[in-house]
Design a protein around this nucleic acid. Sequence first.
RNA 1: GGUCGCGUGGCCGAGUGGCUUAGGCAACGGUCUGCAAAACCGUGUACAGCGGUUCGAAUCCGCUCGCGACCUCCA
Length: 489
Amino acid sequence: MKTELTIYNTLTRKKEKFEPINPPFAGMYVCGPTVYGDAHLGHARPAVTFDLLFRYLKYLGYKVRYVRNITDVGHLVNDADEGEDKIAKKAKLDQVEPMEIVQKYTNSYHRNMRQLNTLPPSIEPHASGHIIEQAAMAKKILENGFAYEVNGSVYFDVEKYNKKNNYGKLSGRKLEDLMANTRELAGQSEKKNPFDFALWKKAEPEHIMRWTSEWSDGFPGWHLECSVMSTKYLGEKFDIHGGGLDLQFPHHECEIAQSKAATGEDAVKYWMHNNLITIEGQKMSKSLGNFITLDEMFSGKNDLLEQAYSPMVVRFFMLQAHYRSTLDFSNKALQASEKGLQRLLKGIETLNKIKPSAETSVDLNSLKEKSFNALNDDLNTPILIAHLFDGIKLINQINSGDETINTDDLKELKSFYKLMVFDILGLKEEKGESETDTKFEETVNLLLNIRLEAKKNKDFATSDKIRDELNKIGIVVKDKKDGFEWELK
RNA sequence: GGUCGCGUGGCCGAGUGGCUUAGGCAACGGUCUGCAAAACCGUGUACAGCGGUUCGAAUCCGCUCGCGACCUCCA
């Protein structure tokens, strides 16, 4: 390999060479979902992005610990002053236990992540399992003088912190601007400043998720869990912290402040942010109500969808854009990705059927080098995929006899495509996963073999009938030189 | 209002000073085929506008227009 992995660090706004703090170990923490609703397209982007990074770091030989949390407590539903726990609110609506909600949506999240072929993280800690640690961190920040207690709640003192530190360095904000732009709401707040954030929040009587602490019966502030769980499992200083761009401020900014206030050190070496998915140019969000859940995506059951899109199509769609670009959802774009993915996978099938020659006429080293260079350049998967398509063209030319490849190079090319497409990009074939599917496939194959017989006997009436009837059912038949293929419409 | 980012050919989407006609999809032409489809091969169209810097800009600078994100729960 000619180049080394560089990644874009949001903190420095530059691409930096990736050099882990304690090689060969590499630690990465990614903000996971709040499990109070179905996972949607937006959840898939960081999951796929950081799954790619996880896979690639492992390929590069690092011993990677990938931590992704489950937020099952602590996010406030309204503003920090009056809010109640998001999960508790939903639980009341549904008249069930909060932890039942948590379990339900954790399960469906895991199912969706498996469908997207993301590898499970090394550790998936729950916020609710780390209340004690969160209280301890709040206490430490309090002792260090960067927080204050009011009526059983503990708030982070941003102004004081900012005197010696730079609050806003990740998101490029200045405290003065924040002060100038924040209008105080009629003096209702317990906080010294509106931009102070809760480390511990006293629970209102109706608040059902609560824990005892020295300040009050309450719950931890919503930024604290990530600071606690990342450093608990990766160390006070660790390599990569990832998440969606929308978490940059205030969430990640607060994490930085908390860690610094607690330990005196910056915890994170590389901050990475994936960009957002938009729908018709607008961000998908709860408040706009324009989000598409992954289950809807995979089943096609949403009015915005013209058809179902398989998990691998969704994954490929995301990989065809760079993770730091916004990606606009549209049926046209997804359909283009579907076709493109088919072409890529078909090319690999062709590759597996190629017969070697004595000589190699194609330049494999160039292909490989360009591909790794793309990946090393801040995970530039669209460029990588472009090169893989160039390679597919070569494969087709070899297959048709216009180019040649020898036995060793063929073997190498096969393992290269397996590595890139399946191991690193994390794509996979999606056919025949259940027993019913298998039997169904055999049935269709049986019919098509009969059709093949009919064709050989020039009984085109029969052969066309089988083809047309299958087409009516929604099975498209494609003839090949020496056989057939079919797919569901 | 403050901060940040974006505007590339029919669509998606890379590219940040001169040689990538990026790539995918669509379109068109061809090969193949009993026919059709598929597959494969080939081809075209571009850098929001205006001005500036430069021998040279999609790429740097300025302005204009348009769009978006964050500042509030959100991946």
